[in-house]
Amino acid sequence: MSEIYTEKLSFAYDSQEIIGNVDLSLDDGQVLVILGPNGIGKSTLLSCLSGLHKTYRGAIKLEDRELKNISSRELSHRLALVSQGVNIKSSLSLYDYLLLGRSAFHGLFAQPDASDQQKVVEVLDLIGLKDFAEASVQDLSGGQKQLAQIGRALVQEPHLLIMDEPTSALDYKNQILVLKLIKALSDKNISIIISTHDPNQAMMVGDMVGLLIDNQTYIQGQTEEILTEDYLSDLYKTPIVSTFNTELQRNIFGTRMD
């Protein structure tokens, strides 16, 4: 079943069209990776899909309902967003920070209850930061902060998790940590959309890959169909070479330096 799809989605800001003609679709429990150069509109696209920009044209259907018509409260129970590169300044403890995501289920005057706390404990375990529950979020390392943000989204119990360049600010070890978490979440049947700069990461986690080539062209398909030398060279306007690595059992991408 389809989790989310768009028809001729476009979005303009100050009468300038940033993305146009996007036909995107994602099935239940799959991972869609969106690739594209800087400034092409990846963040705008993800913001539209998250319901942050409701003045889009075309259609966005979440579980076959038009996104515009879903209240932000209901939306927060279906999807969650991990924004790009937000430097968490909060001096809350990690535990209390994650708990904030549970506000999605409560009113103005509510306090978190036992089931909220139970959920936070589960998520702390899932993101592997149980030992840091009492640490202040702003004192965590860059990788841990990113995991904390993902954790805060996960306590909303979303079907669909949207992450804007979740690995871009991280060192290699933490990138892998986050990619493994994405795999694990996908195995739990959470549908995931991420954007990234790195075709290798798309190869590692993507069931589907979408290319934002310019503001009128979006191409999407199975990972193997899309991650070809031709498409990638066209996308990045530079010759990209791929080679099959028998050890990893997947293609890896690079470019010649001469």
């Binding site: 913001s47 942050l52 927060s76 999807l79 937000v86 909060s90 506000s103 805060r152």
Partner: peptide
């Protein structure tokens, strides 16, 4: 005290 986009996606105006 969170950033605006986060508050929105938690379903709070």
């Amino acid at each position: 005290s969170l950033d605006e986009a986060s508050v929105k996606t938690i379903g709070i105006n």
